[in-house]
Amino acid sequence: MITAILTLLVLAAIFGALLGFASIRFKPEGNPIVEDINNILPQTQCGQCGHPGCRPYAQAIADGEDINKCPPGGEATIQALADLLDVEPKPLDAEHGEEKTPQVAIIREDECIGCTKCIQACPVDAILGAAKQMHTVIESECTGCDLCVEPCPVDCIDMVPIEDTLATWHQNRPLSNIELIATDRPTPAVNKEDAA
């Protein structure tokens, strides 16, 4: 009887010490989950989720907000977030917009009046220009957030889909025979090209 109690006590002490040690030794620093979430978000900084940029939304998700408010990321981002946070993926919340093909903003330069409104709106400083000077978009830096379209007083900014080039084109995922059955088909996000 006494031995049993003693044994249990000793075991409890040992394991307790181990747990205590581990909690100090392997303490995670900061709140890495926000960084992880932010890494998954597409960094479009479009604000369609209702937050001023991707990082604030990442913080909001970490605080328990829904993961389905990011139209530029679409299903793929939702899936990745669901995997990371171990929650059920949800369909994209239509309230915040729908998933579109990647786009880039183009200024019709002869119509630009040089008002700098779009420059102020661009979240990633991808528009070049100064007051009374023609503006232009640095395409490689444009995230396609379309925040610059609305402020333009003369409506000279177009959102154009990014076209395939030889460098970006790649083969589609083959549809196998068995996937001819509707329920077996991959979800649209897994294979955007197939849907197109």
């Binding site: 932010n38 978000l41 597409p42 960094q43 479009t44 900084q45 940029g53 991707c54 990082r55 979240p123 990633v124 400083d125 991808a126 830096e141 995230t143 970006t168 084109w169 790649h170 083969q171 589609n172 995922r173 083959p174």
Partner: peptide, 28 residues
Amino acid sequence: QYFRYAKGELKQERQQHEESERARIRFE
């Protein structure tokens, strides 16, 4: 074809990640 598809996706994903990383830095 599967492999070429996956290679293409991999390349695209890497590029997207790079772009989003750049966008993040510019935003910050």
